[in-house]
Simulated assay, not measured.
Amino acid sequence: MTWEITPPGAHTPVMLREVMETLAPQPGETIVDGTFGGGGYTRAILAAGAAVIAIDRDPAAIARAATLATEMQGLTVAEGRFGALDDLARAAGHDKVDGIVLDIGVSSFQFDEADRGFSFRFDAPLDMRMGGEGPSAADFVNHADESGLAHLFRTYGEERRAGALARAIVADRPFHTTLELASLCERVIRASRDGIHPATRAFQALRIAVNDELAELASALRAAQEILREGGRLVVVSFHSLEDRIVKRFLADRTKVQAGSRHAPVANPAEPPFSSLTRKALLPAEDETRVNPRARSAKLRAALRTGAPSIPLDPATLVPAVRLKGVPS
């Protein structure tokens, strides 16, 4: 079956075919799209006959979802963070759901809207906030301590020149626009042979920190464990190694029998709360990466909820900590 149902000119979601084959929505089911974005997954799920609870914290995405709700039946729109998807689903009248799909990271709409400050392709305020609340990227850059900035760029951006970049920022701040910061990155960081812009990793690190993206992902995985019915399916598409590592670790811990060690074996090993639907991460097909370069780094992991009790999770245990001093709250 083909899932290429996106209207001409509309947002095309990454790995739509693989998501739909793994999620397998059926008429009468209720699926949570925890990261509505452009609505590509939601539209396909609705077309398959399932109902959708569409979640997003971005007011612009919520407006798009509200428009789609007037065009297609079965869509409930919930504004909020996907880390609280279990609470949002219950507020929509569902104690359990049949499936959850998460597309982690920034949507194409957010990158393409110049005034949001996500991209250094445009000269715009240095913002990067998905929901408009909390400190902006400019607040982080202009007020965080040097060692904290270096740790941020190194941990969330995997930037080799993190220390030099942090020193240069502290020496040259304040920064108010995306191009001001991108220009500094170009002076401090050498252009790479693979064509990645010198500002890419720094902008990525700031975006993750501003929106607390990794903690949101860990919270969403905990929430999925609580709200999925037995036989419910969890599908996660990630684009960054840090994100994929969190998903991989979460599923690894919850798809194996808790048998203990040879020194302290468990007498009656408990059934794990998930069984794997993907032995290893699925990657996008070559035909997709040819037409959509953004798909190249995508990885899909999926699991089936069993009837076993949840394994408690403190989301902080999955997220690398970065401590910044001086950033206004």
Rank of each mutant, 00 (worst) to 15 (best):
D123S: 13
E158H: 06
S136Q: 01
E133Q: 15
G134D: 13
A144P: 00
A150W: 02
G148L: 08
A162D: 13
Y156F: 15
P135M: 11
G117K: 06
D139N: 13
P135V: 12
E158L: 09
E159H: 05
G163S: 14
G148V: 06
F153C: 10
R116Q: 04
T155D: 07
R161T: 06
S147T: 14
G163L: 13
P125M: 12
G131V: 10
H143F: 14
G117R: 04
G132V: 09
A144G: 03
R116V: 09
R116I: 08
G132E: 09
G131I: 05
R129E: 11
G163K: 15
M128L: 07
M130V: 06
S119C: 06
M128D: 05
R161M: 14
N142G: 02
P135R: 10
H151S: 15
E146V: 09
F153S: 05
G163M: 10
F120Y: 15
R161A: 15
F120K: 11
A150N: 00
G132P: 01
G117P: 02
V141Q: 05
A144H: 01
R116E: 04
D145K: 05
T155V: 13
S147Y: 06
G157R: 01
A144N: 00
T155C: 01
R160V: 08
R154G: 08
E159S: 05
Y156P: 05
A164W: 08
Y156H: 07
R160G: 11
F153Y: 13
G148M: 07
G131K: 10
F153D: 05
S136G: 02
H151A: 15
M128K: 04
D123R: 05
L149P: 00
P135F: 12
P135E: 10
A150L: 02
D127C: 10
E133A: 15
E146F: 06
D115T: 15
R121E: 14
A137G: 04
G134E: 13
G157F: 01
P125N: 12
A164L: 12
F153P: 03
F153M: 10
E133S: 14
A137E: 01
R129S: 08
G117T: 09
Y156L: 13
T155L: 07
A150H: 01
D115G: 11
A162M: 03
G132L: 02
Y156S: 07
G134N: 05
F122R: 05
E133G: 09
D123W: 11
H151L: 12
L126I: 07
S147N: 11
L152V: 03
G148N: 03
M128P: 06
Y156I: 05
V141F: 02
S136D: 03
D139G: 07
F140S: 00
A137Y: 01
V141A: 09
G148R: 08
A124T: 09
E158P: 03
G163T: 13
A138L: 04
F118Y: 09
L152W: 02
F118W: 10
G157L: 01
P135I: 12
V141C: 06
G117V: 04
Y156Q: 09
M128V: 09
H143I: 08
A164S: 14
F120V: 12
L165W: 07
D115V: 14
Y156A: 10
R160D: 13
S147W: 03
T155W: 03
A137N: 03
L149H: 00
P135K: 12
R129M: 10
L165K: 02
F140E: 01
R121W: 09
H143T: 07
A162F: 05
D127E: 08
R154L: 11
